[in-house]
């Protein structure tokens, strides 16, 4: 009979994860999209060489990191999908959110510094899984780069908005 109780608990956990997890994910995506619009003036590039006009300008290392974890439903759905392989669609949205959130936090730090661009942006991901082979997935996403303040006379044709949000 304990097999049936385990099944009932499993179904309850899956439903809780599904319902509450979906609500929280939608809320997070709304927040992400809103902040992406707000911080859209800070440009990010993986380019190592800033343009010439940035020479001599103040710069700073900025980073943003976030730890995301899936809910029980994501883990169960991924566990099933792993048997036959393919895209784990339940994890795709989780890691997409984590990446965008990390970029946004980096931009927020750059905005505090007063920068208009972040160059040489790199990403790091590390998983914080417990020893258990089938534990709930948990990952830390880190984005870091060099934030640069644009010179006051930066021409508009290069796309950098000068003098905006200077603190």
């Amino acid at each position: 009979m304990e097999g049936l109780i385990k099944l009932v608990i499993f179904v309850l956990l899956v439903l809780t994860g599904l319902i509450v997890g979906t609500i929280l994910e939608r809320r997070h995506y709304r927040s992400i999209k809103k902040r992406e619009v707000e911080l859209g003036h800070i440009l990010v590039f993986t380019e190592r060489m800033p343009p010439h006009q940035f020479a001599g300008q103040p710069f700073q290392l900025v980073s943003g990191s976030v730890v995301v974890s899936g809910d029980y439903f994501k883990t169960a759905a991924a566990g099933l999908k792993k048997i036959i392989g393919g895209r784990l669609t339940s994890y795709e949205s989780l890691l997409d959110r984590g990446r965008r959130e990390a970029i946004l936090r980096m931009k927020e730090q750059a905005a505090q510094f007063g920068a208009q661009a972040i160059f040489n942006v790199r990403f790091e991901t590390s998983s914080l899984n417990q020893k258990r082979k089938n534990g709930i997935i948990c990952a830390e996403m880190l984005a870091y780069g060099t934030a640069l303040k644009a010179p006051p006379q930066a021409a508009n044709e290069t796309g950098f908005s000068a003098n905006k949000n200077l603190r």
Binding site: V14, L18, E36, G40, L43, V44, F45, P51, F73, K74, A76, A77, L80, K81, I83, I84, R87, T89, S90, E92, S93, D96, A117, A155, E157, T158, G159, F160
Partner: peptide, 29 residues
């Protein structure tokens, strides 16, 4: 001089629209 810009990225590239729950039910069956 190149123009530096960050155009908005379409949502569907990294996240698929298929329902994870529907897939879960199908695989469970």
């Amino acid at each position: 001089m190149p123009r530096y810009e960050n155009p908005p990225i379409p949502e569907e590239i990294n996240v698929s629209k298929t329902s994870a729950f529907g897939e879960f039910v199908k695989l469970s069956i």
